[in-house]
Design a protein around this nucleic acid. Sequence first.
DNA 1: CAGTGGTCTAGACCACGAT
DNA 2: TCGTGGTCTAGACCACTGG
Lengths: 238, 238
Amino acid sequence: MLSANIEIRDYLANLIAEYNAGNGGHFTAGRLPSERELVEQFSSTRITVRDALTKLEAEGLIYRSNRRGWFVAPSRLVYDPSSRVNFYLLAAQQNKTPATQLISQRCIKGPAETREALGLVAKEKVIELVRLRSLNGRPVLFETIYLPEQRFPKLNKARLEGSLTVLMEEEYAVQICHEDNRIRVSAVYDQVAESLSLINGAPCLEVTRIRYEGDRKAFEFDKEYWVHSAIELSIPSK
Amino acid sequence: MLSANIEIRDYLANLIAEYNAGNGGHFTAGRLPSERELVEQFSSTRITVRDALTKLEAEGLIYRSNRRGWFVAPSRLVYDPSSRVNFYLLAAQQNKTPATQLISQRCIKGPAETREALGLVAKEKVIELVRLRSLNGRPVLFETIYLPEQRFPKLNKARLEGSLTVLMEEEYAVQICHEDNRIRVSAVYDQVAESLSLINGAPCLEVTRIRYEGDRKAFEFDKEYWVHSAIELSIPSK
DNA sequence: CAGTGGTCTAGACCACGAT
DNA sequence: TCGTGGTCTAGACCACTGG
């Protein structure tokens, strides 16, 4: 016995599969019918229709753009966090158009977790960079980067929307010696949710990264929130 | 302006934080108040209460046990997919009690994706093992393992609930040379959802793994579905 | 058996996006 | 301004769990 929300999910999942295979004139510009249209079509209610849409969202088959509608999710960016390939190159290799927007830049004391990870003492401050990255115009990554101020004086503002790895190498002679990545499924709220056009509490993939240089001195602490349907991690080993 | 579901979320998130810090007599045995109790407490409706609970679930702060109730999520298992530490050792190191249940064992042709990954031709078959793994009695991982029948004849049934890595080393002289892991946020349905006490469409962390031996011959294909609040991946590099 | 969550009905009003 | 999704009300019945 199928429940109604699963029925609707299956129906849409089939249309999406056809659309992705290039066989479908369903969906103009990847936009799904409005929730109210689906309600009519299935003689159902918005609760049930939204249940179905939420399931498809969880699977990563569709995504929402806040109050604009539901869209078929493009193929995922495949990303190896242990490789140091930068975002622009990675996107280009996978035929996607990347963009980066610097949202804010501050010099602050910083949260305890960050200070500890970077081994800061007394009055040492951190530079906090907040950036939003997009693929083909769709925001997919909200990231906050913390750098010890002392290690990176006079950051070149003009370059903060480009690859930081390259900037750090070229202007500060950074040589990465080690990197820790922590990956978990989590949820986004407030500024993160709004920036990514998601609703409060939407699931995401959270990556926390600490980078070390020289004799294992931490020089960078990152928090990344990925729109979960936009990414797949690839981790080779040995 | 806070919406009601966020208010309820925040209220519960605070209680959960206290409970986890050991300061709270809230929640007996980690069980949250029933949805209907929360409805009364907040003069709200189940829709709104469930919105709040779903958000907490997405964050990994609570989990549901199908039709039994909502529970505070224990600390996550930290897991490095590129290390070959087996599940039992890993759990023990983190003070958790592991268990494995073999759900089914078959010899079949297998799905196309699997056959391709394993490089099977003509009538070669695969052994399909389905297992459920638990931590402290809570199911956290549903996995399907595919092995080429020709490479692993006469599998020792008695050992299929233990570490396969150890079994393969000891009885088939397998030497892993390489491994690919693909990680994505996805959703569970049907048998997977039921086995994990989740509802259809609940989010999960999906890991697809291919292992190679000798001169890059694939000998194992795995699909893992993790209850997302039960796991955090740790990926060191360089 | 009672109590839980799972699913669903049939509406309503609001905030925001596009135009 | 109109259409979209976001949030919410006030119920209902069902499936399953546990005592």
